[in-house]
Amino acid sequence: MLDVRRLYMLKTVAARGSITAAARSLALTAGAVSQQLAALRNDVGADLLRPDGRTVALTEAGRVLLEHADRILAAMEEAESAVAAVTGAVGATATLAALPSTVTRIVAPALTALGSCHPQLAVTCLIADQAQLSELALGTVDVVLGQRYHHLPDATPRGINVSPLLDDPLLVVTAADQGDDRPVMLQDLAAHDLAVPPATTDCGQAILQGCQRAGFTPTPRYVTADIAAQLALARAGLATALVPRTAIDPTTLGIRATSIADHPIQRLLFAATRHTEHANPTTTAVIAALHTAAQEGQTACLPPVQE
Score class of each variant (00 low, 15 high):
Gln205Cys: 01
Ala279Leu: 13
Gln212Phe: 01
Leu111Thr: 07
Leu152Ile: 09
Val173Ser: 02
Arg267Pro: 00
Ala232Glu: 09
Thr292Asn: 08
Tyr222Met: 01
Gln295Asp: 11
Ser81Gln: 04
Asp142Trp: 11
Ala229Lys: 14
Asp193Thr: 13
Glu60Asp: 15
Pro264Leu: 08
Val33Ala: 12
Pro183Ile: 07
Val83Thr: 14
Gln205Ser: 08
Arg245Lys: 14
Thr104Leu: 15
Gly45Arg: 06
Ala239Gly: 09
Ile260Phe: 04
Gly159Leu: 05
Thr93Glu: 15
Leu49Ala: 01
Thr156Tyr: 03
Gly204Arg: 07
Asp47Lys: 03
Leu189Arg: 12
Leu186Tyr: 09
His275Val: 04
Val44Tyr: 08
Pro198Lys: 01
Leu138Gln: 11
Ala108Leu: 11
Thr258Ser: 13
Pro281Ala: 05
Thr224Gln: 10
Tyr8Ile: 05
Gln130Ser: 13
Val172Cys: 05
Leu26Tyr: 05
Ala61Tyr: 12
Val4Pro: 03
Thr284His: 14
Ala285Ser: 10
Arg235Ala: 13
Asp188Lys: 11
Ile227Thr: 15
Gln132Ile: 02
Ala98Glu: 03
Val4Tyr: 07
Leu233Ala: 06
Thr292Phe: 00
Val33Leu: 04
Val4Cys: 06
Thr102Phe: 00
Leu2Asp: 13
Gly237Asp: 11
Arg50Gln: 09
Val123Trp: 06
Leu268Gln: 14
Glu78Gln: 14
Tyr222Thr: 04
Asp188Ser: 15
Met185Val: 12
Ile106Thr: 15
Pro220Asp: 01
Ile227Gly: 05
Leu28Asn: 00
Leu171Asn: 03
Glu135Asn: 11
Arg16Cys: 13
Ala22Trp: 11
Leu26Trp: 03
His118Ile: 00
Leu189Gly: 06
Leu171Cys: 00
Asp129Gly: 14
Val33Trp: 04
Ala30Arg: 12
Cys117His: 13
Ala69Cys: 10
Val141Cys: 13
Leu26Ile: 09
Thr258Glu: 09
Ala131Pro: 11
Ala293Cys: 05
Thr252Asn: 07
Arg245Glu: 14
Thr156Asn: 08
Thr252Glu: 15
Leu40Trp: 01
Leu145Pro: 00
Ala176Ser: 05
Thr95Asn: 09
Glu77Ala: 03
Cys203Tyr: 05
Phe270Asp: 08
Asn280Arg: 08
Val33Pro: 02
Glu67Thr: 15
Gly91Asn: 04
Asp3Glu: 15
Leu73Trp: 03
Asp168Phe: 02
Asp226Cys: 08
Met76Gln: 14
Thr246Leu: 05
Asp202His: 12
